[in-house]
């Protein structure tokens, strides 16, 4: 059964029509995780909507990024890459429910290289960072 239903498909097609630079979704599966299986299926379906979307299936999970520990990585991790470089955006698990729209919007934003929608002061402060910053937003995909 497809995850992207006939009802949703036009919205997905419309959203992804905004892609400019190709986006690579690096998918790190977690065998045995239902959300990982669902994410793999979703990514496969999405590639049918745009030739500017490429899915690369990796052999294993990436190393945990602190404060994550290896045992924490219970499901898949999907990274957004553009121009051969990471964008800093990752999805741990499945972007269901209210998270699906922002998932597509994020792809288009990195693809268009549009200016980040943050204040100038924040942009300057963030650009000047000389240490890693790891933001993890916990959500429930209902």
């Amino acid at each position: 059964m497809p995850l992207i239903t006939d009802e949703v498909a036009p919205h997905v097609r419309n959203a992804l029509s905004g892609l400019e630079t190709p986006v690579t979704l690096k998918f790190h599966p977690q065998p045995g995780s239902p959300a990982s299986e669902a994410m793999e299926q979703l990514l496969d379906e999405l590639t049918a909507f745009s030739d500017k979307l490429v899915v690369e299936k990796e052999a294993s999970l990436p190393a945990p990024m602190p404060p994550e520990e290896a045992e924490d990585l219970e499901s898949s991790i999907t990274e957004f890459w553009v121009d051969g470089k990471p964008t800093g955006i990752r999805y741990l698990g499945f972007p269901g429910g209210h998270e699906f729209g922002p998932f597509l919007e994020a792809m288009v934003a990195v693809s268009k290289h549009s200016a980040p929608k943050i204040s100038e002061a924040t942009r300057q402060w963030i650009e000047a960072l000389d240490k890693p910053l790891h933001l993890e937003v916990f959500v429930t995909p209902t």
Binding site: G88, R90, P95, G96, P102, L129, D130, L133, L135
Partner: peptide
């Protein structure tokens, strides 16, 4: 420098 994760709780 920055990584932003959505974590499916």
């Amino acid at each position: 420098r920055v990584t932003a994760d959505m974590v499916d709780a």
